[in-house]
Design a protein around this nucleic acid. Sequence first.
DNA 1: CAGTAAATTGAAAGCGCTTACAATTTGATG
DNA 2: CATCAAATTGTAAGCGCTTTCAATTTACTG
Lengths: 367, 367
Amino acid sequence: MCSLNIDSKKKPRITIKDVADASGLSCATVSRVLSGYEFVKETTRKRVLEAVEQLGYVASLPARSLAGGRSRTIGLLVPNLDVGYVGTITQGIDKALSSANWDLVLYASHHQLNKETYYVNAIANGITEGLLLIAPQFPSTYLDTLRERDFPYVLIDQADPTENSSIVEATNYQGAYEATQYLCELGHTRIAFIVGSLNVWSAVDRLRGYKAALADCNIPLRQDLILEGDYQQQGGYEAVKQVLNTVDPPPTAIFASNDISAFGAMDAAREHGFRIPEDISIIGFDDIPQASLIYPKLTTVRQPLEQMGQVAAQMLVERIEERSRPPQRVTMATHLVIRDSCAPRQFQPGERKKPFRETGGNLSPTN
Amino acid sequence: MCSLNIDSKKKPRITIKDVADASGLSCATVSRVLSGYEFVKETTRKRVLEAVEQLGYVASLPARSLAGGRSRTIGLLVPNLDVGYVGTITQGIDKALSSANWDLVLYASHHQLNKETYYVNAIANGITEGLLLIAPQFPSTYLDTLRERDFPYVLIDQADPTENSSIVEATNYQGAYEATQYLCELGHTRIAFIVGSLNVWSAVDRLRGYKAALADCNIPLRQDLILEGDYQQQGGYEAVKQVLNTVDPPPTAIFASNDISAFGAMDAAREHGFRIPEDISIIGFDDIPQASLIYPKLTTVRQPLEQMGQVAAQMLVERIEERSRPPQRVTMATHLVIRDSCAPRQFQPGERKKPFRETGGNLSPTN
DNA sequence: CAGTAAATTGAAAGCGCTTACAATTTGATG
DNA sequence: CATCAAATTGTAAGCGCTTTCAATTTACTG
């Protein structure tokens, strides 16, 4: 408590009182200026803004939030940190919020239930005014509480059986149907499917689309070609590694529940000596930016991720501004994007599987 | 204001007063129980905890923060949402904070100066007690302010010329030196280097290490083999695409400033018809989890990302608990991890690409 | 000029919590 | 029992801001 802390000369906090003193007005008026209240004289407003700038005043968000003011901050709960799916949605969210002068703060659950539940509570009791949830895995544990609290939220890429939530989603079933149908049209009959995390509704819908397309193409459903996945690259890699090592003859095409799993599938196929797309065709889902960067460019079902983020953010902000808004459900169209990772099934008897140990795996004489 | 909002029956907030009433104690005592103050009777403590559980009380973080209490929340500013580098560091941070009962909240600057500066301010004026910054690009614009405010922070993978910051970093120079040296030992003399974002200190250090190793291996430095990059996959892809299209003979090895750029380099090389590692060797930096998933597995300089996150988080928490702590600098060792993406340089006359258009005059018979 | 309505601003309460200091209780000792 | 020290708890102020309601100012009309 003596003058031992010579270096920690903490600059006293500039408060709204300092601004009021410097501008010769009351705290109430300063507050009104800063919140954009309409009945303030222009000369008064200028005096306040000058004082704010001179003093470098920054409002205390906890104080403002506690006093009933606006933090203009939205919480976003994400399952992981992923520059493709989550990152693209987040950029859409960020864009919509920025243009409306809102801040975005992220919480990462790392796919853990206790984290997901805990953070939803922390968000609802912090300074944020609403919550966006990207593909939450355990929403039933807290959606009722959020509604009781009348805390605004929007689900992205997840369903709510109670029909009481605002949701932004894509046509997962239709997208998966079209992708599978495309592989059928290419002549593939052994089409493996990497499942996503089945507690996310999109994974369930995609599996159903896959099954429906097989049925409509008169291809029998094979349980050993439905590969357990978790939307992650390593999960996709291991699933495909296993099916290529155990199923004989192996699948000639793979439809993965998302692009990240498809990347893992590509790695496993290459490691197994398969060329893409000559020996095995691969389709992903999402069309994250990386899908068109890799070689060969991935055929995938485009989900308008950025727009989904934008729409969700707009829905949430509208919900915050107008609490009587009923829950909405917006379903955005997917679209099969055909690139380079698919080819017609090869019907030669020597199906080039083993003796072609091409470590790079990409050079064909036609290059 | 009438009873039009039949559906918005918002449940009144449970406050600390409700808990105090239910347990027959004062608010101060309830607060003391919840903050773990030692001089509380065990019977009193139990009464409070029972009331908390029965009522489902959750503290208001803004109120607690404003009153001088602990939010036990750390802000993390990240340049983007990246499951490899940022995600791995974040997992280390999360692990260290979780075990110490702290929360983590992320802000993504998306590499924009105004976002980075703005969010640092928002964090410092919100409910967080400290700030971690992963590879911030523009720290000079706000570090002085943070110090004036005595707001605790730690830099990860970035330098501060004033030497007044706590920093966690890796031996970037040494790591880059070793990677480049390894390529020299494999016989490569045309080694391209993809630069990182040069406003991040690690990028500068890695470039210096590359240059030093070339000099020590008596390989002349070539400006046209130093490729402009930005630590991003697309940047790496485009840089390599260009160098393969313009430099003749092309480089036989590429050292990228990070794994993500290396992935982009691999894609461009494949697109150009090159096999990895037969035609072109590639080294990354970071050893993010994906580096050992892809095919072929990437040789890379391991940066102990998770441990860096852990150490940074611990340093920050210690700094918050003990404000007199002087700034610390922790430098963690990198380590060259040799996997499958490198091979000795091929010396055959038909080097598999072109008809060997020797125009540049780099290959001397003494090579 | 007086009266009125609208515009503008200030005073004060309070948001939910923490903590300093005072008051009370408890336990030990002679 | 009285005294004392430590343990335990309560009271009240206050953190920084917002907002309601009252007070003041301004502008217009007859």
